[in-house]
């Protein structure tokens, strides 16, 4: 079979392009460690969140040196806690669940974005950088008040975070 030289070049280029795309995704997973939303969490009772260790009191908790866990409940129409306050330059794992219908959990303008399903716990781990205030929005239509369902994720300095946790019991 006769294949024109130019056609060979185009074939080689398209194979190269495919390798580049696959290579980038592989690099993303191996280098910066980009991961998917974990599906390893056990199902929970969406109606019994008040009796749940993690979700009866939505909060941010320190679990290791520079490691924090945020237990977040999405509901019609908001997020608890609000704002979610986490320290800068730390590793934060969000455990997000819903007490009513399907919601979304999207930290606006960032890659932190997951669906929130009642009875399921969505787990995403992110690394925070400098101090910043992020908006938090629901990106799954969840009812009449969907468009006003929002929250805040505040990345604050370590000192401010400690202050809030020591003195902020009444909050």
């Amino acid at each position: 079979m006769h294949i024109h030289n130019y056609e060979k070049i185009w074939l080689a280029a398209s194979v190269l392009l495919i390798l580049l795309l696959l290579g980038s995704v592989t690099y993303g997973a191996v280098g910066p460690g980009v991961a998917m939303v974990s599906d390893s969490e056990q199902a929970i009772d969406a109606g019994g969140l008040d009796d749940d260790d993690r979700f009866s009191e939505p909060r941010v908790e320190q679990v290791g040196e520079n490691e924090y866990e945020a237990y977040v409940v999405a509901y019609q129409f908001g997020f608890q806690p609000d704002p979610i306050v986490v320290p800068e330059n730390s590793t934060v794992t969000f455990y997000v669940t819903s007490r009513d219908v399907i919601h979304g959990f999207e930290v606006a303008g960032t890659n932190a974005n997951t669906m929130v399903v009642p009875g399921e716990v969505s787990k995403i781990t992110v690394e925070t950088d400098d101090r910043q205030e992020y908006g938090l929005i629901c990106n799954e239509y969840c009812g009449a008040g969907h468009h006003v369902m929002e929250g805040k994720v505040n990345v604050v300095s370590q000192a401010e975070f400690d202050d809030r946790n020591d003195g902020g019991n009444g909050e």
Binding site: L17, G28, G33, N111, E127
Partner: peptide
Amino acid sequence: ILVLSWVYIYYIEFLGRDLVVVG
């Protein structure tokens, strides 16, 4: 154009954003 767009979309826009999901 394709290669440059991909490099921009993946390496700069996606990986350059805050709060990259790592787990």
